[in-house]
């Protein structure tokens, strides 16, 4: 038996495989397809202060080995989330992390404060890829000072575990990672989607109504691996690797590079029980290589 459990902040995950925000709803949509309690945990769709209708259509388009999306953080808002979605999460026998976003610095801590009292919420993942309305649409996560302010604000609002989800669309992701640590993050999730665009050459219109969107899927895995590698070298809190993980081999690569846990995203749309197969594959790999715990795999990258 391989011990797959990991600890991030106050979170005890039975295994290091989480469902990425926006790809698993509120945990109930896939109940008919597999046993959700087999997962290390789920991260909910983003919750914001007020309801967001989301962006105009088209919102998604397939690309070679990937997909572009521009959903616009469509969600019911924190109050309805607590009333309507929270009771459904009670049935899940796994860790629940709520992804939180805001258009102002204050909105983040306000949303977290409203959920702080719910035992069902095990932790928060702070989505700093949201455009800052006060700073003219600049993404919070591209500015180290704002990042630190947002994270420290949330830190004051909760004693639960805080993860910060980092965007790859920056000059130096390590600067943002350090700012998150300074703000009081317990772990970092990376990477969010890569800025991308598609054009229909017949109509000369962009594929997405919002013109640019976020690229996910296997196409971005090498980018994600490099970012995880850079961040792990620079900071000492756990890193959760995300980006194009489609099979257990992909996941193992992230652990070797230094990830403490991983998130599965786009794969959920294609193979709902794909994450379970990944958990099994990681366990077999560790067994085969004589490892007693997943911790032995994390950061085991050899010199080239």
């Amino acid at each position: 038996m391989v011990d797959l459990s990991v600890k991030i902040g106050n979170l005890h995950l039975k295994n290091p495989v989480l469902m990425a925000s926006g790809t698993f709803g509120y945990g109930t949509e896939y109940r008919d397809y597999f046993d959700v309690s087999l997962l290390g945990g789920i991260i909910t769709k983003t919750v914001t202060g007020k309801m967001r209708e989301g962006n105009p259509m088209p919102r998604i388009v397939e690309t070679p080995c990937g997909m572009l999306n521009s959903i616009g953080l469509a969600n019911v808002g924190v109050d309805r989330f607590c009333q309507e979605k929270m009771p459904e999460l009670d049935h899940l026998d796994t860790v629940v992390i709520v992804n939180v976003a805001g258009s102002t610095i204050e909105e983040y801590s306000e949303v977290v404060e409203k959920m702080q009292g719910y035992d069902r919420v095990d932790g928060f993942e702070i989505n700093i890829s949201c455009p800052n309305v006060k700073k003219g649409g600049l993404e919070f996560g591209t500015d180290p000072e704002i990042t630190e302010t947002v994270v420290s604000g949330v830190r004051k609002a909760t004693d639960k575990t805080i993860l910060v989800k980092l965007t790859p669309n920056v000059t130096d992701i390590v600067t943002i990672a350090r700012a998150s640590v300074n703000g009081g993050a317990d772990g970092l999730s990376l990477i969010n989607t890569v800025l991308g665009m598609g054009v229909d050459i017949e109509t000369r219109k962009p594929h997405l109504a919002r013109i640019v969107g976020g690229l996910s899927g296997p196409a971005i895995k090498p980018i994600a691996l490099a970012k995880v590698y850079q961040v792990v070298k620079a900071i000492s809190i756990p890193v959760i690797g995300i980006g194009g993980i489609m099979k257990w081999e992909d996941a193992v690569a992230f652990f070797i590079v230094g990830a403490t846990a991983i998130q599965v995203g786009t794969l959920n749309f294609i193979e709902p029980d794909g994450a379970v197969k990944i958990i099994q594959g990681i366990e077999r790999y560790c067994e085969k290589n004589g490892m007693r715990s997943i911790g032995e795999l994390t950061g085991s990258l050899q010199k080239g």
Binding site: T23, G25, E29, Y30, G54, M57, I60, M67, N268
Partner: peptide
């Protein structure tokens, strides 16, 4: 409509 998940999760196929 173009869909990714088909089960209401990704919110890609809005009307």
């Amino acid at each position: 409509e173009t869909m990714a998940c088909g089960v209401g999760v990704c919110q890609g196929c809005a009307v």
